[in-house]
C-alpha cells in the first residue's frame, strides 16, 4: 500500500500541470492502476418501509481486474463473490450461483461497481452517462442509466473517492429506497 501510495504521489507530480482539468479519462487511468486490496465496508440501507436505516458491515477484497469478494460479518455472515461473470452468494447453509452474462440488467448493475474499480470506461459508458466533478484528490462520479430497463432498478449511482481509491458508492433505487456503501481501505500486506 505504501508502495502504491508513493507511486501515486509520483504520478501526481507527473500529472500536476494537467490537474486543472481533471476528466473521466484521467480518473479511469488512476483507478485502473489501483492494484486492489482489502477494505472495511459499512453498508447503510434506507428503506421506506422501515423506521430506521439497516446497517451491514464487513470486509471487501478486490483483486484486479475481475474478482470482488464482499464478506458481510454483521448482522448475519454472508459471502458474496463476483468472479468474472459468476456471482455467488453464500448465506447460512445456502449457496446460489448465477452467471451474470445471462442477466443484462444485473450485469449492468454489477458493472457500475466493477467498472469503477477496474477503471473500465468502456464498460461504464455502455450502460451509463458519466458525470464527473471535483479534482483528483476528491472526486464524485455520477452515473445515470442509459437504458429504461436498468432505470427501473436504479435511478442513479454516485461514486466518490480519492485518486485511485473508491471511498463510497451510493445507489438510489427507483422506489426511492437508497443504499450507501462506504469503504475504508486497510493497510495492505
Amino acid at each position: 500500500m505504501i508502495k502504491s501510495l508513493s507511486f501515486g504521489l509520483l504520478l501526481t507530480l507527473l500529472v500536476l500541470p494537467a490537474q486543472a482539468a481533471f476528466d473521466v479519462g484521467q480518473l479511469m487511468a488512476g483507478l485502473a492502476r489501483h492494484p486492489g486490496g482489502k477494505a472495511k465496508f459499512v453498508e447503510t440501507r434506507f428503506l421506506a418501509v422501515l423506521d430506521k436505516p439497516l446497517k451491514a458491515s464487513g470486509e471487501m477484497t478486490y483483486i484486479a481486474p475481475d474478482r470482488l469478494e464482499k464478506r458481510t460479518l454483521l448482522p448475519k455472515p454472508e459471502i458474496l463473490i463476483l468472479d468474472k461473470d459468476v456471482l455467488t452468494l453464500e448465506r447460512e447453509k445456502q449457496k446460489f450461483s448465477i452467471n451474470l452474462a445471462s442477466q443484462p440488467e444485473a450485469l449492468a448493475f454489477v458493472d457500475s461497481i466493477r467498472g469503477t474499480l477496474a477503471g473500465n470506461r468502456l464498460a461504464l459508458e455502455r450502460n451509463y452517462l458519466l458525470h464527473l466533478v471535483g479534482n483528483e484528490e476528491k472526486w464524485v462520479l455520477t452515473m445515470l442509466p442509459r437504458d429504461q430497463r436498468i432505470a427501473s432498478f436504479v435511478l442513479r449511482i454516485v461514486v466518490s473517492g480519492s485518486r485511485g481509491q473508491m471511498r463510497s458508492i451510493e445507489y438510489l433505487q427507483a422506489d426511492g429506497d437508497r443504499s450507501l456503501l462506504t469503504i475504508e481501505p486497510l493497510a495492505g500486506p
Partner: peptide, 30 residues
Amino acid sequence: SIDLLASPAGMLFKPFLTRDPTGEMAELLG
C-alpha cells in the same frame, strides 16, 4: 427477514415484506 433485506438477496423479497414479514417465501424458495 429484516436482516435479509440488508443482503443483495433481500432485494428480491423486499416487495413482500409487509405481506410476508415472517419470510415464508424465502423459506419456500430456499
